[in-house]
Amino acid sequence: MAALEQRLIRPLYSLGRYALLLSKGFTSLGHFSVYRKNLIVQCGRVGIDSIPIVALAAAFSGAVTTVQTAYQLVSPFIPPSVIGAVVVPSLILELGAVVTGFILAGRVGARIAAELGTMRVTEQIDALEAMGLNSIGYLIVPRIMAGIIMFPVLYVTAVLVGVGGGLAAAVATDVVSTGEFIRGARENYLVFGPMFGLIKSFVFGFVITSISCYMGYYTEGGAEGVGRSTTQAAVISCVYILLSDLVLALVLL
């Protein structure tokens, strides 16, 4: 009975604590100059430092999607431009945001949780609080803001590089010409597509950074606790990316 009660109460407790963490962070921020430098640093770590891995993953996603689409669809009855018509919207609507989200859940989410977790177990967070600083505002708000600001940038990068990768794969494997690929993409271009992708990347940025901050900030129990928080941050972020992806698709499309 106690175990069942624990199972029911624990998620509610976590949700409440997560909401309180965010409200405490954003409602008593103090002067922006205290956080400005940290925000710039976090934008670099979350965004700029992630560009190479996001670009690499996007390029391969675009290339693989192109090759597989060609394998499935190309026949004498289907025009080759269909490849462009399938690959580009796929990247804009889904792959650009989700692939970026998964990569950043591992790269950024784990890093944030490990950093904050280590600060927690070595009493650095207590030291900030003891000085009279809002540790949540100082540590968490800049990371979440950096996620919200930089994820859309990474999404755009992923889409551009992914389309480039897809086009390069199409031309290299000689399944479709550059002109046909672009013509297919333009003919099936959805005006809302990029907006939908940007909204998703904005939401994913918030989900990944806020969950990872929560996991790291409330780390308990030394090095083992830091390891646990880091793993949970990456795993839970991925789960919530999938959930929010579905919810956004149902609501917005």
């Binding site: 070595t122 009493e123 650095q124 207590d126 030291a127 609080e129 003891a130 000085m131 009279g132």
Partner: peptide, 13 residues
């Protein structure tokens, strides 16, 4: 209130 305090933590922090 906390700004009136200085704290030396066990591991330095």
């Amino acid at each position: 209130v906390r700004r009136q305090f200085g704290v030396l933590f066990q591991g330095g922090a």
